[in-house]
């Protein structure tokens, strides 16, 4: 079986842990519980008849109190940059992290997630911004860890991207 390491990155309280919980155990908890350090979960999925073991590294969000530990990223094949669509600043943080990380992982697959799409009345990211990001080549998923919207699709698509990368290299 092919095994791939995926890192979930982003600002704090954007829903990284919740997305993983929704994906692995189909559970969502409303209360925000901050992460410290890293936690690794695993899930096997089937993509186009191939078994893929995803090692999901849930890294604590970066903020004034916590800097991303670059050593945890070693060996990653995929990155999920998570932003909270109701906090513009979290999208900026994700894009900043991408600029910082990309040079060290030129072969890795990157996708961008705008989570909390269920909170439409507080949504801050404009369609224009999304169009510009997509024009820049970003694969973007509008997810909700609460309702499960696009969560399976996100991990499936990233898995597919990583498998394609493997064939290409």
């Amino acid at each position: 079986m092919i095994s791939k390491k995926v890192c979930m990155l982003g600002s704090f309280a954007v829903g990284k842990t919740s997305l993983i919980r929704r994906f692995i155990v189909s559970i969502f908890e409303e209360k925000y519980q901050t992460s410290v350090g890293v936690k690794v979960d695993k899930k096997q999925i089937t993509i186009d008849d191939k078994q893929l073991n995803m090692m999901l590294w849930d890294l604590a969000g970066e903020d004034a109190f916590n800097t991303l530990q670059q050593n945890f990223l070693r060996g990653s094949s995929g990155f999920i940059l998570v932003a909270d669509g109701t906090r513009q600043s979290s999208l900026e943080k994700s894009l900043e992290l991408y600029q910082r990380i990309r040079p060290d992982y030129p072969e890795a697959a990157f996708v961008l997630v705008l989570n909390k799409v269920d909170l439409q009345e507080s949504w801050q990211v404009s369609d224009e911004q999304l169009r510009a990001l997509r024009a820049d080549g970003w694969q973007i998923f509008l997810t909700s860890a609460k309702t499960g919207e696009q969560v399976e699709l996100l991990f499936e698509q990233l898995g597919r991207l990583m498998l394609h990368q493997e064939i290409a290299t």
Binding site: A13, Y32, T34, V36, D63, S89
Partner: peptide, 20 residues
Amino acid sequence: QQQMHQLARESMLSKDELEL
């Protein structure tokens, strides 16, 4: 450590919500 981060981040979230 987790409780300390939780408090700090909740306070930052409240500030964000206030600005919004």
